[in-house]
Amino acid sequence: MGSKTNPSVVARLKRKRRIRRKVHGTPERPRLTVYKSLKHIYAQIIDDTRGVTLAAASTLSPEFKALGPVEGKVGAAEKVGQIVAKKALDRGVTKVVFDRNGFIYHGRIRAVADGARAAGLEF
Score class of each variant (00 low, 15 high):
58 S>R: 10
7 P>Y: 06
110 R>E: 13
43 A>R: 08
103 F>P: 00
99 D>R: 03
105 Y>M: 06
49 T>L: 14
106 H>A: 00
21 R>Y: 01
38 L>S: 15
104 I>K: 15
48 D>C: 13
24 H>T: 09
68 G>V: 08
96 V>T: 09
20 R>K: 13
97 V>S: 03
57 A>S: 10
40 H>P: 02
83 I>N: 01
33 T>R: 12
72 G>A: 10
75 G>S: 13
40 H>N: 07
47 D>R: 08
4 K>F: 12
50 R>A: 13
70 V>I: 15
26 T>P: 04
116 A>F: 05
37 S>P: 00
51 G>A: 04
66 A>P: 02
6 N>G: 11
8 S>T: 11
83 I>Q: 02
123 F>L: 06
8 S>D: 04
22 K>S: 12
68 G>M: 04
102 G>M: 09
120 G>N: 02
52 V>D: 05
123 F>D: 03
49 T>F: 13
30 P>W: 07
18 R>V: 15
80 V>A: 05
97 V>I: 11
76 A>Y: 09
18 R>L: 14
59 T>K: 04
36 K>M: 05
102 G>N: 11
91 R>A: 12
99 D>L: 09
123 F>K: 06
113 A>H: 09
7 P>H: 10
79 K>D: 02
7 P>L: 12
47 D>C: 14
11 A>N: 14
51 G>D: 06
50 R>H: 11
83 I>R: 00
86 K>Q: 13
42 Y>M: 01
46 I>W: 13
33 T>C: 14
83 I>Y: 03
46 I>P: 03
53 T>Y: 06
27 P>Q: 01
109 I>W: 12
73 K>W: 08
55 A>Y: 05
107 G>Q: 00
22 K>M: 11
87 K>T: 01
120 G>Y: 00
57 A>H: 01
98 F>Q: 00
115 G>W: 07
71 E>A: 15
87 K>H: 10
69 P>S: 12
47 D>Y: 13
4 K>L: 11
17 R>G: 11
92 G>H: 06
73 K>Y: 12
47 D>K: 01
90 D>C: 03
83 I>S: 00
34 V>Q: 04
3 S>T: 05
3 S>M: 11
60 L>Y: 02
118 A>R: 15
32 L>H: 01
